[in-house]
């Protein structure tokens, strides 16, 4: 159990530290790399409490896909670091306010958790002595009790995807496109004309 505690603090400290470095790093690409480090440590924390499915999904979705997109965008952008820094003091109050609100909410949740009726037991991701692994447990609850919410989430994502495609789709009239049907329908008679050129003349 002591090993568990040590590992927890190692990963937690690394996650928080990486999170701080996301904000503090001068180079935006380094920020994204620190974000990836934070994701990894969070995944490790998930593994520690036995939520292996969530850990893997976190790595696949966030590290494998989302952070790659971040990296793409950040690398492609021409960012002026000095200008990026300049607004720091101006936006500090708003940032601090948002941070405070989040902190208050976290405190509220943890207090109500500790004082609440189920507060005496710390809920583990998998009940002890579980016969099903947590992937199956998750699936069984997700596809029965929360089926409609789950499907709705999927539909919303679908709509968002279609929306993004519609927003970026442009039909340009001034582009000459290849028409394969027209190309295939061409015959020799339409395309080639044999001309008898008189001597010393031009066509």
């Amino acid at each position: 159990m002591i090993l568990h505690a040590i590992l927890f603090y190692v990963f937690a400290v690394a996650a928080v530290g990486a999170g701080a470095m996301v904000v503090a790093a001068r180079n935006p690409v380094h920020s994204v790399l620190f974000l990836i480090l934070a994701f990894f440590n969070t995944a490790a924390l998930f593994v520690l409490i036995g939520a292996e499915f969530l850990a893997m999904i976190l790595v696949i979705v966030y590290v494998g896909a989302v952070a790659v997109l971040f990296l793409f965008v950040v690398m492609m952008l021409d960012i002026d670091f000095a200008e990026l820094r300049s607004g720091f003091v101006r936006y500090l109050p708003i940032g601090a306010l948002v941070g405070l609100v989040l902190l208050a909410e976290l405190v509220l949740i943890s207090v109500s958790w500790a004082l609440g009726p189920t507060g005496s037991v710390v809920a583990a991701a998998t009940p002890s002595g579980a016969v099903v692994d947590n992937t199956r447990a998750l699936g069984e609850i997700l596809y029965t009790r929360y089926l409609f919410a789950f499907q709705m989430a999927g539909l919303i994502l679908l709509v968002a995807m279609i929306g993004a495609i519609v927003l970026t789709l442009r039909h340009r009239a001034d582009v000459r496109r290849q028409s394969i049907a027209a190309q295939l329908a061409r015959t020799r008679a339409q395309s080639v004309e044999v001309v008898k050129v008189p001597l010393g003349e031009h066509v």
């Binding site: 696949i60 790659v68 990296l71 793409f72 690398m75």
Partner: peptide
């Protein structure tokens, strides 16, 4: 022998892109 072996493989293979993109950058 982890329960989510196949997801682990998938996660690892989806990380492969970082080696490439970081090397280039």
């Amino acid at each position: 022998n982890i329960n989510v072996g196949i997801l682990y493989l998938f996660a690892i293979s989806s990380l492969g892109v970082y080696g490439i993109i970081l090397a280039g950058w």
